[in-house]
């Protein structure tokens, strides 16, 4: 199953997004990488790296981020992995895309198909 990592400045926000996905996709391979080691807001290189390693498989990993350093720190973590590793950062609304990705991953879809579904959340109007 494709793995999913939620990167946020907030530990609670990242964990809550993971919890929220369980409503529809309990059993998806999704983990949180939020906040700093001391519990404060920020993005932790080590937490992101550990989270990716935890859900990594040959099927790949999708990373969803909030903003700023979450994106830049994730980029730097990815530079440490082999160029052949199937790890993709996707730019999309973090809550909606986490739900869409976890449902799709649990259904056994490929990373390419899941990313295509996530991309659709960018254009989905709420009303």
């Amino acid at each position: 199953m494709v793995g999913i990592v939620i990167v946020s400045h907030s530990e609670k926000l990242a964990e809550s997004i993971v919890d929220l996905t369980r409503m529809m996709a309990d059993g998806a391979n999704i983990v949180a990488a939020g906040g700093l080691e001391d519990g404060s807001f920020g993005t932790s290189y080590d937490r992101i790296k550990e989270a990716i390693e935890k859900v990594y498989s040959a099927e790949g990993v999708i990373i969803l981020m909030d903003m700023g350093s979450a994106v830049m720190t994730t980029e730097m973590v990815l530079e440490e992995f082999d160029a052949g590793s199937k790890i993709r950062m996707v730019d999309a609304p973090i809550v909606e895309s986490a739900v869409a990705a976890s449902v799709s991953a649990l259904c056994g879809n490929s990373i390419e198909d899941i990313i295509a579904e996530i991309e659709e959340t960018k254009n989905a109007a709420k009303f």
Binding site: G42, T43, Y45, D46, S69, M72, T73, E75, M76
Partner: peptide, 15 residues
């Protein structure tokens, strides 16, 4: 700096 700063200045100054 990348590992320990925690904000955007980490990846930026780190880079």
């Amino acid at each position: 700096l990348v590992s320990k700063v925690g904000g955007s200045s980490g990846p930026l100054y780190g880079t």
